[in-house]
Simulated assay, not measured.
Amino acid sequence: MESIEMYESALPPQRSALFTLLTARAAELAAEKPDIQDFVFVPGHTHPTWDDGQDRLWRAIEQMMLVSPAGDDELPVVWVGYDVATRFTNRREAQGFLVTDRRLIVKDNVDLVFGKGEARQYPLYVGPNGIAASAAAIASTAIESYDWDSADSLVDEEDAEWFSQLLVAAITTTLEAVASTGTAIAGAPVAASDIRARVKELGLFAAAKYADDEKHAKHFAKFAKKMPLDPGEQILACFSASTLAGPYGLMLTDRHLRSRGLGEDPVSTPRVQVEVEAVRVNPQSKSQIIAAIGEVHEFPSHLGEREAGALVMLIQEWAEGRIN
């Protein structure tokens, strides 16, 4: 596919009709938010500012939706965002929020030396309190987890509030339209219990390393010398990096939370001794997590505030035994 028009032409008639309905409603909502019109792109509708608006939108669809589509006939409804040039390749990368008929896709990071920028997704659902409440909850979760610091030169606080309002409205009308077709809509999602699936849900996929991944074999071999495991202990997920001084970072195993700071001795906290309610980012250091009184663990400083918060949640769920 090379354009939105080509994508739509390949849709079955019923899906094409729904696509037309959803994008028409999205265009109406966009017109109600002139203060952020530069950031709002709707398939098939001319952008009021950018002559190449549909090309920008298609790039966002390719990078945020089509890399891992939720079905061959997923329908992009509205993109609220912007694109940036990466520092290392000058490649344009889409950022922001893409609403489809099945999920809200969020991307606030770009490809870096340490890993690939990954999008997060929030499936659309209808909980017990109805469509409007569910739409508000989905949008709120996405807005609160967004790395607004990376967008501070483009999006101010008032713009972010307009983003939130538009997303709630777009998700609401999308759910209403899908429901009107008789299509079953899922209930509120349950967090995955498998650690790799949960890592992906939390938007930590790009930051995680796994011991059975061949491309990280040398990294784990070096780590084994600096941070040995107990006999039979298994690594579940590792959030680490390497320098000339050796590997450092944090790992979860089936028994311990382990970590090593640069040039420091390894630290280990048995799983049963992690105090779930106390787990938090160290107020004195944004690259440390407190697991219990006196138990402080280092993680790579290239992980941002959002990743740190997600890592805290992962550790809490692991300590509670909610993750296999």
Results as ranks from 00 to 15, higher is better:
213 D>W: 15
213 D>H: 14
214 E>V: 12
215 K>Q: 11
219 H>T: 10
220 F>K: 09
221 A>S: 11
221 A>C: 06
221 A>I: 13
221 A>V: 12
223 F>A: 12
224 A>S: 15
224 A>R: 12
225 K>T: 10
225 K>A: 11
225 K>V: 07
226 K>Y: 13
227 M>G: 04
227 M>D: 13
228 P>M: 12
230 D>L: 15
231 P>D: 12
232 G>Q: 09
232 G>Y: 13
232 G>N: 09
233 E>I: 09
233 E>S: 02
233 E>P: 09
234 Q>S: 04
234 Q>W: 01
235 I>E: 07
236 L>T: 01
236 L>F: 03
236 L>C: 06
237 A>T: 10
238 C>Y: 13
238 C>R: 10
239 F>Q: 03
239 F>V: 04
241 A>H: 13
241 A>S: 13
241 A>E: 11
241 A>V: 08
242 S>Y: 00
244 L>D: 12
244 L>F: 14
247 P>K: 07
247 P>R: 06
248 Y>L: 02
250 L>F: 01
252 L>S: 00
253 T>E: 03
254 D>C: 01
255 R>D: 08
255 R>W: 06
256 H>K: 06
257 L>R: 05
258 R>K: 14
258 R>D: 07
259 S>F: 02
259 S>W: 04
259 S>E: 01
260 R>V: 11
262 L>N: 00
262 L>M: 10
264 E>Q: 15
264 E>K: 15
265 D>G: 14
265 D>I: 10
266 P>Y: 03
267 V>A: 07
269 T>V: 09
269 T>I: 04
270 P>C: 05
271 R>V: 08
271 R>F: 14
271 R>Q: 15
271 R>N: 11
272 V>L: 13
273 Q>G: 05
274 V>W: 03
274 V>T: 02
276 V>I: 12
278 A>F: 07
279 V>T: 01
279 V>Y: 03
280 R>L: 13
280 R>D: 08
280 R>M: 15
281 V>F: 03
282 N>D: 14
283 P>Q: 07
283 P>A: 03
283 P>H: 06
284 Q>V: 11
286 K>H: 11
286 K>T: 07
287 S>I: 01
288 Q>H: 07
289 I>W: 00
290 I>E: 09
291 A>G: 03
291 A>C: 08
292 A>L: 11
292 A>P: 08
292 A>G: 12
292 A>T: 12
293 I>P: 13
293 I>C: 10
295 E>M: 14
